[in-house]
Amino acid sequence: MVADGTELPVDERDAELYYRPTTRPGSRLPHAWLGLADPREPSVSTHDICGHGRFTVLTGINGAKWADAAKRVAEELGIPLTAHVIGPEQEYEDLYGDWA
Score class of each variant (00 low, 15 high):
residue 3 A to H: 15
residue 3 A to W: 15
residue 4 D to E: 07
residue 4 D to N: 09
residue 4 D to T: 06
residue 5 G to H: 05
residue 8 L to A: 15
residue 11 D to S: 11
residue 11 D to L: 03
residue 11 D to K: 00
residue 11 D to V: 00
residue 12 E to H: 13
residue 14 D to A: 11
residue 15 A to E: 09
residue 15 A to F: 06
residue 16 E to F: 14
residue 17 L to S: 11
residue 18 Y to F: 15
residue 19 Y to K: 07
residue 19 Y to Q: 03
residue 20 R to S: 09
residue 20 R to K: 07
residue 20 R to W: 07
residue 21 P to W: 01
residue 21 P to K: 00
residue 22 T to M: 08
residue 23 T to I: 11
residue 25 P to G: 02
residue 26 G to T: 08
residue 30 P to S: 12
residue 30 P to V: 12
residue 31 H to V: 15
residue 32 A to H: 00
residue 33 W to D: 15
residue 35 G to Y: 08
residue 37 A to T: 12
residue 37 A to M: 15
residue 37 A to P: 02
residue 37 A to N: 12
residue 38 D to Y: 08
residue 39 P to N: 13
residue 40 R to C: 04
residue 40 R to W: 07
residue 40 R to I: 04
residue 40 R to S: 13
residue 41 E to N: 14
residue 41 E to A: 14
residue 41 E to L: 15
residue 42 P to R: 10
residue 43 S to D: 07
residue 43 S to T: 00
residue 43 S to N: 07
residue 44 V to W: 04
residue 44 V to A: 01
residue 44 V to Q: 09
residue 45 S to W: 10
residue 45 S to Y: 09
residue 45 S to F: 09
residue 47 H to T: 06
residue 50 C to N: 02
residue 50 C to K: 01
residue 51 G to D: 11
residue 52 H to Y: 07
residue 52 H to P: 01
residue 52 H to A: 07
residue 54 R to Y: 01
residue 56 T to R: 01
residue 58 L to T: 02
residue 59 T to H: 04
residue 59 T to M: 01
residue 60 G to N: 04
residue 60 G to W: 05
residue 64 A to V: 10
residue 66 W to R: 08
residue 68 D to M: 10
residue 68 D to V: 10
residue 71 K to H: 10
residue 72 R to I: 15
residue 72 R to C: 14
residue 74 A to H: 07
residue 74 A to V: 07
residue 75 E to Y: 12
residue 76 E to F: 05
residue 78 G to M: 10
residue 78 G to P: 06
residue 79 I to S: 08
residue 80 P to Q: 03
residue 82 T to N: 02
residue 86 I to F: 00
residue 88 P to F: 01
residue 89 E to A: 05
residue 89 E to P: 00
residue 90 Q to A: 09
residue 90 Q to F: 01
residue 91 E to T: 14
residue 91 E to S: 03
residue 91 E to H: 14
residue 92 Y to E: 00
residue 94 D to M: 11
residue 95 L to V: 13
residue 95 L to T: 03
residue 96 Y to C: 02
residue 98 D to N: 13
residue 98 D to Y: 14
residue 99 W to Y: 14
residue 100 A to W: 05
residue 100 A to Y: 02
